[in-house]
């Protein structure tokens, strides 16, 4: 772990990705302390341009955009946490079981994986948001339950490779059961690989979430960057700051996660 961190710190873009990701996480966690105002408080004149009093300006109702943007990080953080947890659990379990050697189970799980992978997630998310109403938790669960296939395939391939390694053969020869070999020998070795790809998977999920928010199908009781950019659409002529800041936050977060993910894949897998 420590050696990965030091290698990550020496990776040219990995460090940038790590710092960017940590920044977004810190802002999200500390949002109530950092934000000068409550996200829905009407504190500014409507459509005020960025100024010393309101750094990112205000929207048509007089909300302070900076406070909204800071609170928006929480929504992305929540989404990222739920998606990560679900993707890790489902991806690792499916990949491990599929790669463990039972041909029929492998076939079945890989078919299910392909079906989940091929269904357009964005349209499914739109359908669910429209049918069941907007909800951050619902959207997070949906994205989590549909984002695992890539990870499952990677874990499966890694499991298949590891199964042929000497230490696994040795464990078998010593009489370990199939389950024990999977959980004690193979699982600890596939977890780093799964983590390496997690950043890229979460980045994609955040882009889908931003798109849903942009279309106005997000939760109206929370603030999200996509939603802020969507509300800005009607004011492009008069208030450039409304789309610019929330959109930049999405791009910054996704970019940081992509850089971190690429670097982790370099450091952990390609070694």
């Amino acid at each position: 772990m420590a050696s990965w961190l030091s290698r990550l710190a020496r990776h040219p873009t990995g460090l940038v990705g790590l710092i960017g990701t940590l920044l977004v996480v810190s802002v999200g966690v500390a949002a109530p302390v950092l934000a000068p105002n409550k996200p829905f408080a009407l504190v500014a004149p409507p459509l005020a341009a960025p100024s010393r009093a309101f750094w990112m300006g205000s929207d048509a109702l007089g909300h302070d955009l900076l406070s909204q943007v800071i609170h928006g990080a929480r929504s992305s953080l929540f989404m990222a946490a739920v998606v990560s947890a679900l993707v890790l659990i489902i991806g690792i379990v499916v990949g491990l079981v599929a790669g463990s050697g039972r041909a029929w189970l492998d076939d079945l799980l890989m078919r299910v994986t392909e079906v989940v992978q091929i269904i357009p997630r964005f349209f499914l998310a739109l359908l669910v948001s429209a049918m069941f109403g907007a909800g951050t938790t619902r959207l997070a669960l949906l994205l989590g339950f549909t984002s695992w296939p890539t990870l499952a395939r990677i874990v499966r391939a890694e499991t298949q490779t590891l199964t042929e390694r000497d230490f696994v053969t040795a464990a078998r020869a010593l009489g370990s059961s199939r389950r024990r070999v999977l959980t004690r020998e193979i699982l600890p070795n596939v977890v780093p690989t799964a983590f390496a790809y997690l950043g890229l998977v979460v980045a994609q999920a955040l882009l889908v979430e931003a798109g849903i928010g942009f279309l106005g199908l997000g939760d109206p009781n929370t603030v999200s960057w996509g939603q802020l950019a969507g509300e800005a659409q009607r004011f492009l002529r008069v208030a450039w700051w409304l789309p610019v800041f929330p959109g930049a936050c999405i791009a910054f977060t996704v970019l940081s996660l992509n850089l971190l993910g690429d670097a982790l894949a370099d450091v952990i897998i390609r070694r």
Partner: peptide
């Protein structure tokens, strides 16, 4: 390429409207 892949399409659209149209 790395920058563009991280940018949401709607934001790129809004930026181009602000700059190249408005």
């Amino acid at each position: 390429a790395v920058l563009v892949l991280a940018t949401p399409a709607f934001w790129l659209g809004q930026l181009t409207i602000i700059w190249f149209a408005l």
